[in-house]
Design a protein around this nucleic acid. Sequence first.
DNA 1: CATATTCCTACTAAAAGAGTAGGATTTGTC
DNA 2: GACAAATCCTACTCTTTTAGTAGGAATATG
Lengths: 151, 151
Amino acid sequence: MMVSTKGRYALTVMVDLARNGGDGFVSLSDIAEREKLSMKYLESIIAILNKGGMLTSLRGKNGGYKLARRPDEYTIDEILILTEGTLAPVNCIMQEGVQCDKAATCSTLPLWAGLDKAIENYLSAITLEDIIQGNRKKMLGDYCESCDPAE
Amino acid sequence: MMVSTKGRYALTVMVDLARNGGDGFVSLSDIAEREKLSMKYLESIIAILNKGGMLTSLRGKNGGYKLARRPDEYTIDEILILTEGTLAPVNCIMQEGVQCDKAATCSTLPLWAGLDKAIENYLSAITLEDIIQGNRKKMLGDYCESCDPAE
DNA sequence: CATATTCCTACTAAAAGAGTAGGATTTGTC
DNA sequence: GACAAATCCTACTCTTTTAGTAGGAATATG
């Protein structure tokens, strides 16, 4: 499993904020209730989003969170990488510098690199806005059965 | 991480067999030595490949394993699904029947479904033969720097 | 000052990941 | 028939990750 509940719930929170945010701040308890998720757990997840600059927050009564940018300015890629740490499908493909010592001669490495690219490709082409618009064509591509054939 | 050492080593074993197999049987100790992997661990991995019909085996002295088909008849997809159980990037996208109870209204589900398809698409288009041929163009696509621009 | 909120640290239980250990069984060779 | 080399099989262990929970401090509003 590449994306854990951490990344999934983070995305859910972002979508919820995009939908229910508007100008004001949305409290975490509201989000947790709407999405039927543990507020305590969401706390730890939203902290990552907040520290990563994805949100702005306000403490105290009537406080809460709101998106730092417009929904179309977030790619799914960056949300998931921030919360999951990496989206690499294998350990071979982690950070820039350090590589497996067999990397130079490894015949399967190009496969993993290609898979990594395919995933990044897909997830960086979709934005929060696409999700709240329900842009199934963009998300499901050729596999979308309920998409208008004309674009 | 979507693919663990189990899937990675399984692929390594398959590639090794494709390269060093020929007609005869190759012993696991040979493979482990060549690939510098724990033979005991490989034992449990190759058992999955064997039971899954990917290999034929011969017990006793001079025994070993060999591929059940030609290298171009194995997709990477099927090797990894057999050994990993699933390649689904999230828990939401597991088996056919059972789904999350929020599936009907979940706005992020199409994203996960699309990601799943993108992964399957990539991995089912590549065969063992592509790997042993070092077909970087196919594996790395547009990101391949050392690929011939003409085809 | 009471209350609703974010913020912060620490803890825990279960599952998955990455092997190890030991031996039973089979088969070819001397 | 004994031996050696191999697959086959069951069980165990240690570590890391996952998925939370618990409790309280800091802050802002009415």
